[in-house]
Computed example of a mutant assay.
Amino acid sequence: MWRKGIEHGGGPEINQWLGKLGILPKFEGGLRVTDEATMEIVEMVLVGKVNKSLVSLINKAGGIGVGLCGKDARMITARPTRGGSLGLVGEVSSIDTSILRNIIKSGAIPVIASVAADHEGKAYNINADTAAGEIAASLGAEKLILLTDVPGIMMDMSDPNSLVREISIQGIRKLVDEGKVSGGMIPKVECCIRSLAQGVRTASIIDGRLSHSLLLEILTDEGQSVFSAALT
């Protein structure tokens, strides 16, 4: 069954607000280093601003958007990232999709901000791609689609014509080992691999800057080969 839902981050918006407050963003391995002050901004921006903006756009287009974050109904339970160097960046400990299933069954579209809490209620910044993959797997989704602001996975980042249009799990692991996949693309391919291992049938990384890229990916045979790197 096709399960519709949106999991989102908001890196540029977070950076903008951190800049206003004189806080310098820091990243390790494509993930944001999150101290207490940064966590407050992350939660404020993702849950209070980006989430509600997306819900409004869905409603304006005629859909029914329902804004949530990982804290709601204990949807995502977090734990600290192993090693601890990222501060309040969390990993997904468990997923409870009960509230999502009810929302989807009603015909609405859940819009989920990537903020979660541990068993003690402490807030954590969860990578949105990671959260999306875990939720997709828990829902038994047919397809996971990650929208980004680059063409996709490329053999050569300086050459758009080197786009990888289809690749196996073994193939993408080789690209990571060779350093051809790096930075923020690493969490994306890792979450694709995890979701596929847990039963999601296909995972695609597509260029969200292109007009109608999502529709082309879902509704046409050509969309995947043109815009995505499908891990199968």
Rank of each mutant, 00 (worst) to 15 (best):
E142F: 01
D129N: 11
L163E: 10
L216A: 06
T34N: 08
G179D: 08
I104S: 01
G121Y: 06
G5S: 07
I109N: 00
N161M: 13
V176M: 14
A203S: 15
S213I: 13
I153Y: 13
L210N: 07
E178I: 01
G30W: 04
T34K: 07
C191R: 07
G184S: 05
T232N: 11
G179R: 05
P160T: 12
S228L: 09
S162C: 13
K143S: 04
I112W: 02
V92L: 04
D207I: 11
Y124H: 07
G63P: 12
L57R: 15
L54A: 02
N161L: 13
K26P: 00
L163T: 09
Q224L: 09
A141N: 00
G19W: 00
V89T: 14
A37G: 00
I145C: 06
P12D: 14
M185A: 06
I126E: 02
V92M: 03
G63D: 08
L219S: 09
R194T: 10
L215D: 07
V115E: 05
G11D: 15
S94M: 12
L196K: 13
V33L: 13
V50P: 02
I41Q: 01
L18K: 11
G67P: 05
A137F: 01
G171A: 10
V176H: 03
T148G: 09
I76G: 08
P151S: 02
D159M: 11
K174I: 06
K52V: 12
V42C: 14
L88P: 00
V55T: 06
T38S: 07
L88V: 01
D72M: 13
I76M: 11
S195D: 05
G22A: 07
K105T: 07
K4A: 08
D177G: 09
I193G: 05
I206V: 15
E7T: 11
G22W: 01
E222Q: 12
V150G: 03
A128L: 11
S195I: 00
Q198R: 15
N59W: 06
V89D: 00
I186D: 06
G11E: 11
R82H: 02
